[in-house]
C-alpha cells in the first residue's frame, strides 16, 4: 500500500479526511446511543454541527486564541500528510505533538481557570503517551530493516502486528487518550459532563470551535490510518483491525468511569511503558 505523492492526492486527502473523521465520530455516537437504548443522531450529525458552528458569530477572550486554533489545524493536516506519504516517523511525531501543543497553548492563553486546568491535564497526557509513540516508531525501525521512513511498514510483507503485539496494546491506550474516551477524557470530553466543564476548549466558540472540531476529524482519520499500518498487506485486514479498535474504544468509553490525571501518568509510565520497552528489547534481542 503506497500512496502517490501528487498534488491531486494532497487535495483529495485534505478534503476527504475530515469527512471520514466526521463519519467515524457519527458512527461512534450512533453505537453509543444504541448501547444506551437510544436511537441516536444521524451518521452525519458531526458535519451538520460543524457547519452550524462555522456560521455563528465569533466570540473570544483575546486574539491569540485564533492563532493557536489555526496552528492546531495546520499542524494536524501536516502530520496527516507526513503519515500518509510515509515520511520520517519521528518528524511525524514531532509535528503531531506540536499540533496538540498548539491546542494546549490556546487553552492556556486565556485567563480562564477551567480552560487552564484542562490544558495542564492535556500536557500531562502528552507526557504520558509520548514515550509509547516514540518507542512504537523505534519498533517499526527495528522490524523494517532499519528505516525510519513510515513507508517501510506500509510495504512490509509481514504484518507489523505480529512483531509488535505489546506495542499495539500500548498504542490502543494512546488511542483512547487521543480520542478523548473515558477513562482518559480528563482534559476535555465530548459530553461536557465532567467537573471542569468542557476543559481545554471551553473558551472557544462558534467558528473557532469549528476549527478545533475539524482538526479533531483529521486526527481521527490519522489515527485510523495509523492502525492500518499494523496490518498493511492485505490492506482490508488493516481496515478491519482499525474498525475493531475504534469499536473497542466506544465500548471502553461506555464501560469505565473517569480517572485522575496522575493515575494515568503513572499507569502509562509503568504498565504501558513496560509493555512497550519489553517489545522493543525483544526486537533488539531477536535482531542480534
Amino acid at each position: 500500500m503506497i500512496i502517490p505523492q501528487t498534488p491531486l492526492m494532497v487535495v483529495l486527502l485534505v478534503i476527504l479526511a475530515p469527512l471520514f473523521g466526521a463519519l467515524l465520530c457519527g458512527i461512534d455516537r450512533r453505537i453509543t446511543a444504541r448501547a444506551q437504548g437510544r436511537i441516536g443522531p444521524p451518521i452525519l450529525q458531526a458535519v451538520y454541527d460543524t457547519i452550524k458552528l462555522l456560521r455563528k458569530e465569533p466570540m473570544l477572550l483575546n486574539r491569540v486564541q485564533i492563532v493557536y486554533a489555526y496552528l492546531h489545524l495546520a499542524f494536524m493536516i501536516l502530520a496527516m500528510l507526513l503519515l500518509v506519504f510515509g515520511q520520517d516517523s519521528l518528524m511525524f511525531l514531532f509535528v503531531f505533538a506540536f499540533s496538540t501543543l498548539s491546542l494546549v497553548l490556546g487553552g492556556m492563553c486565556v485567563r480562564s481557570p477551567y480552560s487552564r486546568i484542562g490544558s495542564q491535564r492535556e500536557i500531562m497526557l502528552m507526557v504520558a503517551y509520548e514515550p509509547i509513540l516514540i518507542l512504537l516508531m523505534i519498533g517499526f525501525y527495528l522490524v523494517n530493516g532499519h528505516s525510519f521512513m513510515l513507508s517501510a511498514p506500509m510495504t512490509a510483507a509481514k504484518p507489523m502486528l505480529l512483531s509488535l503485539p505489546l506495542l499495539f496494546i500500548g498504542f490502543l491506550v494512546v488511542l483512547a487518550i487521543k480520542m478523548q474516551k473515558s477513562p482518559f477524557d480528563i482534559a476535555t470530553s465530548h459530553h461536557a459532563h465532567q467537573e471542569i466543564v468542557k476543559g481545554l476548549t471551553i473558551e472557544y466558540s462558534g467558528p473557532y470551535l469549528a476549527i478545533l472540531e475539524i482538526a479533531h476529524f483529521y486526527e481521527m482519520a490519522l489515527l485510523f490510518f495509523f492502525i492500518v499500518l499494523f496490518w498493511s498487506s492485505p490492506v482490508w485486514v488493516g481496515i478491519i483491525l482499525a474498525s475493531l479498535s475504534f469499536f473497542l474504544m466506544t465500548v471502553v468509553d461506555n464501560a469505565f468511569a473517569r480517572l485522575t490525571s496522575m493515575w494515568i501518568f503513572k499507569f502509562m509510565w509503568t504498565g504501558a511503558l513496560i509493555l512497550a520497552v519489553t517489545n522493543v528489547l525483544w526486537l533488539y534481542w531477536a535482531s542480534k
Binding site: N62, V64, M108, C109, R111, Q120, I123, M126, V127
Partner: peptide, 18 residues
C-alpha cells in the same frame, strides 16, 4: 517527553493575557 512538560507549562503561563 518530559521536556515538553516544562516548556509547555511556561509558554502557557507567559502567553496568558486578557
Amino acid at each position: 517527553a518530559l521536556t515538553i512538560f516544562f516548556w509547555a507549562k511556561w509558554l502557557g503561563r507567559i502567553t496568558t493575557t486578557s
